[in-house]
Design a protein around this nucleic acid. Structure first.
Length: 504
RNA sequence: CGGGAUGUGGCUCAGCUUGGUAGAGCGCCUCGUUCGGGACGAGGAGGUCGGAGGUUCAAAUCCUCUCAUCCCGACCA
């Protein structure tokens, strides 16, 4: 236990703790290319669980999946002025299509003869290539709405990367919809940010703020952007998902018009919305601790780890079958409509103590100890990952009791995150207090303050404090947050408080 | 992209100042003893010292370039 096998404690260095955890919980590994990551099975399982549940929610709201290509003609990016400005600086570009042997005999080099006529951009997002298709598919109001989602990878040439939170290549889903009216697109934009909120709360156990982005923070090419914003244990904010109302910007750029019922030609209204593998980083930062990964049961790779104790044949003959039987019973009973993800840890070279620590590092929600002495007493020991609490339960009915523990953990994580947010949300009205609050390294929670609504003030505040406007919340955290006041920076009138925080 | 730091068996690091042909702990493999919170003993395997070039009789060590990671900054859905 005193050996240096653990993580850097969060109190010592939050960012080292995060990096250690990603490695030791085997969520991801570095790749030979800067900014890219290998997502390992333990991390990918979380992504698969996220995908499964999000996809169900998308389907339930009428969406279908499709796939659009990775490579985009360079010229497409420049069709929409704001869009190209937003992404031009971080694009990877394909310029050639062939390699050849180095004439100097040192491996391979790019064949200069194989230069592409038009260079191709690796998608940083797919609006442009998708709207190129939509232009072909949409002629009449009867072709609308189009409600398509795709699961894909995208690439943004980030200069400063962190595993999961900001990588050059990442996995995500991007929904792209086309509508006949502004109102219908607005309803879609709102519906999807609410889907993300529901997912964050009910599956990730993260109490997110939902609101609208300021002009300065909205998506490049959007009319406006809605978002969910999460608070991490180091009191920073993570933008966890966005939903954009694109107005007619892309329809105009790609000339997508439809004939209305009245026979008039009109431009289509668009939305796009996405969440990415950044959600995994958010999840880690929201719940995990100095012993390792903590994941809410609904997303955990392993929900229950059963550790049979005793390695001599006599002990094994008793604890192994009981363990297997319990595992089978859990799978059959299921949790939230799916077989329980349960593992019986029969590794024979490791001691029970090692296994306990190992499963805590890897993020198993519930650990069950099945020992010879327990069996004699007709009981089991069950330990919960988030609280560390160990209880003894009767062997009879154990599966049901374990399911209850899973549900209790799922609920407790959300409550804990909500309590973190409540304890770290402040309302500040004096500029000196505001500046002092954000002084120093590290996060400082959410600050609700008045803002005069101008981009000038917004950028001056962020220059002075490193804090940015995270969103203008849909629902006030307190009714008084929607009362008018005076901008914390300029003293000009303000209609309501907005949320400031230091962000990842 | 700018500043700083780092890169030596799977991991953590020593060796570099003062060049002389690579070490420790952990992990791994084998055997035995163990097994209720990171077991113990004995034996064993494993390294083009991130990569390329240069200086030298000789480079992990000195020089140049380059790649990657971390921290800070700038940038950023």
């Amino acid at each position: 236990m005193s050996k240096n096998l653990g993580l850097t404690p969060r109190s010592e260095s939050y960012s080292e703790w995060y990096n250690d955890l990603i490695q030791k919980a085997e969520l991801a590994d570095y790749s030979p290319v800067r900014g890219c990551m290998v997502i390992r099975p333990n991390g990918y399982a979380i992504w698969e669980n996220m995908q499964r549940h999000l996809d169900d929610m998308f389907k339930a709201t009428g969406h279908v999946n499709a796939y659009f290509p990775l490579l985009i003609p360079k010229s497409f990016l420049s069709r929409e002025a704001e869009h190209v400005e937003g992404f031009a600086k971080e694009c990877a570009i394909v310029t050639h299509h062939r390699l050849m042997n180095d004439p100097d005999g040192k491996g391979v080099v790019v064949d200069p003869e194989a230069k592409l006529e038009e260079e191709l951009v690796i998608r940083p997002t797919s609006e442009t290539i998708i709207w190129h298709s939509y232009a072909k598919w949409i002629q009449s109001y009867r072709d609308l709405p189009i409600l398509i989602n795709q699961w894909a990878n995208v690439m943004r040439w980030e200069l400063r990367t962190r595993l999961f939170l900001r990588t050059a290549e990442f996995l995500w889903q991007e929904g792209h919809t086309a509508h006949a009216t502004w109102e219908e697109a607005e309803a879609e934009t709102m519906q999807m940010v609410r889907v993300y909120q529901k997912f964050a709360e009910e599956f990730m156990g993260v109490a997110v703020l939902v609101g609208k982005k300021s002009e300065g923070e909205k998506f490049a090419g959007a009319d406006h952007t809605y978002c969910i914003e999460a608070l991490t244990q180091d009191l920073r904010c993570v933008q966890a998902g966005t939903s954009h109302h694109l107005g007619q910007n892309f329809a105009k750029a790609f000339d997508v018009q439809f004939q209305s019922q009245e026979g008039k030609l009109e431009y289509v209204y668009a939305t796009s919305w996405g969440v990415s593998t950044r959600l995994i980083g958010t999840l880690v930062m929201a719940h995990s601790d100095d012993k390792g990964l903590v994941v809410p049961p609904r997303l955990a790779a392993t929900q229950v780890a059963i550790v049979p104790i005793g390695r001599d044949d006599a002990a094994r003959a008793a604890t192994y079958p009981v363990s297997e039987q319990l595992a089978e019973e859990l799978r059959e009973l299921g949790y939230r409509g799916l077989p329980v993800r349960v593992r019986v840890d029969k590794r024979e070279k490791e001691t029970p103590g090692f296994k306990f620590n190992d499963w805590e590092m890897k993020g198993a929600c519930i650990r069950v100890e099945v020992g010879p002495r327990d069996l004699e007493a007709g009981q089991l020991i069950v330990a919960r990952r988030d609280t560390g609490e160990k209880v003894t339960i009767p062997l009879a009915g154990a599966a049901q009791a374990i399911l209850e523990q899973l549900e209790a953990m799922q609920t407790a994580l959300l409550e804990k995150n909500r309590a973190l947010r409540e304890a770290n949300t402040h309302r500040l009205d004096r500029w000196e207090d505001f500046v002092r609050h954000f002084e120093g390294e590290g996060g400082a929670g959410f600050v609700l303050a008045h803002w005069d609504g101008t981009s000038e003030t917004e950028s001056k505040i962020s220059e002075a404090t490193k804090a940015t406007i995270r969103c203008i919340p849909f629902e006030p955290l307190h009714p008084d947050d929607e009362l008018p006041g005076r901008c914390v920076f300029s003293g000009e009138p303000s209609a309501r408080r907005v949320v400031f925080a230091k962000a990842y």
